[in-house]
Design a protein around this nucleic acid. Structure first.
Lengths: 338, 338
DNA sequence: TTGTAAGCGTTATCAA
DNA sequence: TTGATAACGCTTACAA
């Protein structure tokens, strides 16, 4: 636990000189620098970032706030893959990541700014939070830079990364229409998800483009949960036999719809075509394999962290919106209607 | 950015009193305490943990070192699920988590102790590292408490969490033997994985118990990677038609073996029985569904963090080994040999 | 019950 | 090129 003081004593110089030598300042003679570096090595010195952060008022730390980081995320690896991207990017830029695990209960106890200030993070990346989350308002008002994943929030120090959700939904629905489907339902997430609103818009836009009337009853909320989607799809498909295709706002819900269809004796894709969204790992393992909209989740995380560190270091205004591409991946759950 | 100084000035007391009042010490009169709490609220004060950690020499932070936290982990959700457990447990105990993402390159630049000291973590949880990782030696020598997941390392301040891998392998193999299999191969991971050694031991022990000779050539290393397992299994099964069952040291490799078998025209489970290990999410989605050994990954993470925080706070010697149960989950990839 | 003052390990300012 | 010294925001003897 050697400190610069120890080094100073050992080398017979002042702490100032040690600090400057170790930080590569130019105004240190080559001789003393060598000496200091040597003694630092000998004493097995490593700097105390806490002390450094305190005086410099910079922690080189990014907070990662994932709402409900929990097992339910295990199926769609979305959170995980985004996190890997964030992690790599942050490491590249020399930032550390601290995990803020939070939930609605904890949020009541502690405000966003409190959370950030206590841990002295320089910026925050937020993932998986809902549009009505009280933190969003705080984020915009606060002056702590923040980047959202898949929530379109903008502000002085706030940006976001997402994929083109309207476009994604459009190509999904267009694919179904091109196959000849006319009665296309949508299994959406919930009203508090930004992506839900966008994907719905894409769905509706594409239907209108094809002169197909948008039917409110054809749009169901599956809460982004597989079992909910299954239950709701079962009830819906039972009553609406004329539906030949379902566009789902997530692969996980698509799995639920597939199960419901199977229980109803519907053959996929002959009786019912299904398109998902996300291209999660599981989508390749269902039978038939799921047709879906692919998003590069790792890249989303990587871009988010890059945007944040750029905000943190640059005075040049950073690009505060990043919209990545997504694309249609045609597999086995879509076919022309019978 | 109010500090206790500001509060002291505003409330007309000394910083000491503010500190004591806010930390719930008893030697503060009810009146001043009220006053201080009120002004703290008004100034929207939040303590600076950096400063506190510096003076108390305690950061209430745990380092999470995951070797190669990357996309390849996306398929087996192992890492993610363990992390969720760690996260929850750490949060329960009031510790924050900082992510150390490391890889072999970075490890050469920075020693384990350096890494820990720089970030002032009180303890570390290590996951996914190999037996020959140079950090292990450092961990044992260092006095920073550390808990490993799935690596059996012990020391003064070192413990580990694992499941009973020998037992797990035994029940897997016993299941195959009970079905009538005699020619059972093993797709193992690699020599640097602790669990590989253990699972192999279980495999051999069970064969011997059933009076079946252990054949060295029947044990293949698949590197815990799906494509490697597939390639090696293809070559192996092509040459060894008499093999009727394969026990795999991970589900991911079992997926590879399944693919190889399918390519060779072998029907599962009629021509070839397969047992995996881990019970990853995917194992329920293969067809047929994978028979496997289930481990509670979330629990492993939770226990690891609990062990560590207990080491950190207690002076009573903590139980430094936690071996969780695992169990056979019989699904569709095992059947009697033809 | 309260306050003074020292100290945690750094960096930064200024003077030598 | 170097060194005193103050400062960052907090806790904690010790004194009053």
């Amino acid at each position: 636990m050697a400190t610069i003081k120890d080094i100073a004593k050992e080398a017979g110089v002042s702490v100032t000189t040690v600090s400057r030598a170790l930080n590569g300042y130019s105004d240190v003679s080559a001789g003393t620098r060598k000496l200091i570096e040597k003694t630092a090595q000998e004493l097995n010195y490593s700097p105390n970032t806490l002390a450094r952060s305190l005086v410099m008022n910079k922690s080189r730390t990014i907070g990662l706030l994932v709402s409900e980081l929990n097992r339910s995320g295990a199926k769609d690896m979305f959170t995980y893959e985004v996190m890997c991207g964030i992690n790599d990017s942050a490491a590249d830029e020399g930032y550390d990541l601290v995990l803020f695990s939070t939930n609605t209960v904890k949020q009541k106890q502690k405000s966003y700014t409190q959370l950030c200030r206590e841990r002295q993070v320089e910026g925050v990346i937020m993932q998986g939070i809902k549009m009505d989350d009280p933190y969003i308002k705080e984020v915009i008002e606060s002056n702590i830079p923040c980047v959202f994943v898949d929530v379109e929030v903008e502000g002085e120090n706030v940006g976001y990364v997402t994929t083109d959700n309207i476009f994604g939904a459009q190509i999904a629905v267009k694919h179904l229409i091109n196959l000849g489907h006319r009665n296309i339902a949508m299994m959406n997430g919930h009203d508090q998800a930004h992506v839900s609103a966008k994907r719905r818009k894409g769905y509706e836009r594409e239907l209108i483009e094809a002169d197909i009337a948008v039917q409110e009853e054809y749009i169901i909320n599956g809460e982004f949960l597989e079992p909910v989607a299954e239950t709701k799809a079962y009830r819906f498909l039972e009553k609406n036999k004329h539906i030949t295709a379902v566009f789902c706002a997530s692969d996980l819900m698509a799995l639920g719809v597939m199960k419901a269809a199977t229980r109803l004796g519907l053959k996929i894709p002959e009786d019912l075509s299904i398109v998902g969204f996300d291209n999660i790992v599981l989508s390749e393992y269902t039978s038939p394999q799921l047709t879906t909209i692919g998003q590069d989740k790792y890249q989303m995380g990587y871009e988010a962290a890059k945007m944040l560190t750029s905000m943190l270091t640059n005075r040049i205004p950073t690009q505060k919106i990043a919209t990545l591409d997504n694309s249609l991946i045609i597999r086995g759950t879509t076919a022309p209607p019978k």
